[in-house]
Write a protein that binds this DNA or RNA. Structure first.
Length: 270
DNA sequence: AGTCGCGCCTGGCGGC
DNA sequence: TGCCGCCAGGCGCGAC
């Protein structure tokens, strides 16, 4: 499930192959993604030179002089760089052929991902109103505390809201709340400034550590070379319901918060 | 305005 | 062994 660390890992992996390179062809094999791939996308991107690669939340941005290609990996998406001529696999929906003889392939079995072309002159509602980057200084205890006042949703749903802060999905929300010793079901508006300080610190820590491990591979996620991310080995609670808490030994509990699998320790988290 | 539930989609897995 | 139903969840959307 690509969250910020998986998208960042992908960005760092593909960057050396694409930066300063020219796209010589674009093939859209399956336009039926989360949002339909626009019919003119290939025409707009072909011939463009990629002048920068960036990430905003879970969106990858391939910058050119006339606009940017926005890619979201959805639930099961991945990007791989292969040599031109390697056989296409099932669910390889879109390809960018690069002047160097490499090909960037967008692979997404469940098709929850999306690909957009965004001209320089236009904004896009999907990225224009996002919250701060969690690894930036704009994301701090005061910000999160103030943003939470009056909110009746659970703290877990609160930090998974991309309008509040980008990049945190179910896995890292579970992990950060465990590390911060906060129960996922706590009401966001009733948590103290001090505890939000701890939560901010743990969110930054878990995301940073996960990036260092190349992200978390549960099923679908792979790096640009097809290799998995290894942060699964360092998960403390996600996927570990029924196992003893690594901190106190009590059996970890699983429930549904916001209709998503939530794992926590009833002793360590309050 | 904030909150909640739905649905998109495929593949893996448990149960029978 | 095979089939069926459930589940995984990012995220926009409609309803209240």
């Amino acid at each position: 499930m690509p969250e910020l660390p998986e998208v960042e890992t992908t960005l760092r992996g593909i960057k050396p192959y694409l930066l300063g390179k020219t796209v010589t062809a674009v093939m859209v094999h399956e336009p039926r993604l989360r949002w339909p791939v626009e019919a003119n996308l290939a025409q707009m991107v072909t011939g463009q030179t990629i002048s920068g690669l960036n990430r905003r939340g879970k969106y990858l941005l391939l910058e050119t002089s006339s606009g940017r290609l926005m890619i979201h990996l959805g639930m099961s998406g991945s990007l791989r760089v292969v040599k031109n001529g390697i056989a296409r696999r099932k669910h390889d929906h879109l390809e960018l052929v690069i002047s160097t003889g490499k090909v960037l392939r967008f692979h997404d079995p469940r098709r929850f991902g999306s690909v957009f072309w965004l001209p320089n002159t236009e904004g896009h509602e999907l990225i224009d109103n996002l919250g701060p980057e969690p690894l930036s200084k704009d994301f701090n205890a005061d910000y999160l505390f103030e943003a939470s006042r009056g909110r009746r949703i659970t703290v877990k749903n609160f930090v998974m809201n991309s309008k509040i802060v980008v990049g945190i999905g179910n896995i890292y929300a579970n992990e950060a709340l465990f590390m911060a010793a906060i129960l996922p079901s706590r009401v966001a508006g009733t948590i103290s400034r001090r505890r939000y300080g701890t939560l901010v610190e743990k969110i930054k820590l878990v995301l940073t550590n996960a990036i260092e491990s190349g992200g978390t591979t549960l099923r679908d996620f792979v790096r640009e070379d097809g290799s998995p991310g290894y942060f699964k080995l360092e998960l403390l609670v996600y996927g570990l319901a029924g196992e003893p808490c690594k901190r106190c030994g009590r059996i970890l509990t699983e429930s549904r918060v916001g209709n998503r699998s939530t794992v926590f320790c009833t002793r360590c988290q309050r």
